[in-house]
Nucleic acid binder design. Sequence first.
DNA 1: CATATGTCCTGAGAGC
DNA 2: TGCTCTCAGGACATAT
Length: 285
Amino acid sequence: MPELPEVETMCRGVAPLVGCRIAAVARPRSRLRPIQIRPDWAAFRRRLVGRTVCAVRRLGKRAVFELDGDDRLVIEPRMTGLVLLADPPNRSHLRLVIAMQEPGRQLLFWDQRGLGVVQLLSAEEFESSLARGRIGPDALGVTPEILRQRLGASRRPIKVALLDQHALAGVGNLYASEILHRARIDPARACCRLRASDWDRLHAALADVLHEAVRAEGSTLRDGTYRLGANRTGGHQLLHRVYMRAGKPCLQCGGGPIVRIVQAQRSTFYCPACQKAGRKQGVPR
DNA sequence: CATATGTCCTGAGAGC
DNA sequence: TGCTCTCAGGACATAT
């Protein structure tokens, strides 16, 4: 499930396409339902061919290709999408091939479940979707003050609020649990009940966990869909302290065990000992 | 407006 | 063995 670190890794992977010019755009044939491409396929293709890739950026969980003429190609991998230069896991779930004029250069979008969305937007459309709060500020670009400003007034549990991409972009289900564990905050606590010190720890944990995961090139989970091409996996799954570790001892306090609860129909993993609401925030032995 | 819930999708794995 | 069922969750639509 690509979240910020996985999308960042994919964007870095396709950075060699900067400067390349799009020669052809193709949708491989498939028995599967086609993914969403906007605007319609004909216009999408017509507007892409001939464009040059000026930059590849990431915003939250989206990969944004800036093209000459100021259009933006925005790819949302959602659950199982991969943005690659080559070597997709298989051919049957390859959804989009953008071939460049430069020999051997191409951009691939592979997506097993097909929930991903690919859009071509004008600069105005892209900016207005940000301005109208459709996409919140990137999680790695916020200060502790902005973090609190974006989430602090909500009565929702902090774990649920962290997943709201309109409030803050980039954190998904996996890293929300890891971040709250590192910050020693109870995932069920309402945002509006957090104190200033909690926001400081949350901000530090957010940056720590996400940077650590980027360094490890993201997390490949049991389903194995997240790949870096050439069948390479990410490495951060080896560093998870709570995610998918229900019943196992807490790596922080040695106690535990880690508990799984469900919030907003999603799994949350946490250590009740380390993350007890209102507990004195020391390092337990 | 804020918050909660249902929906899309495919493949893996469980259970019979 | 082969079937049916459940589950995973990102982002949006719809309901309250």
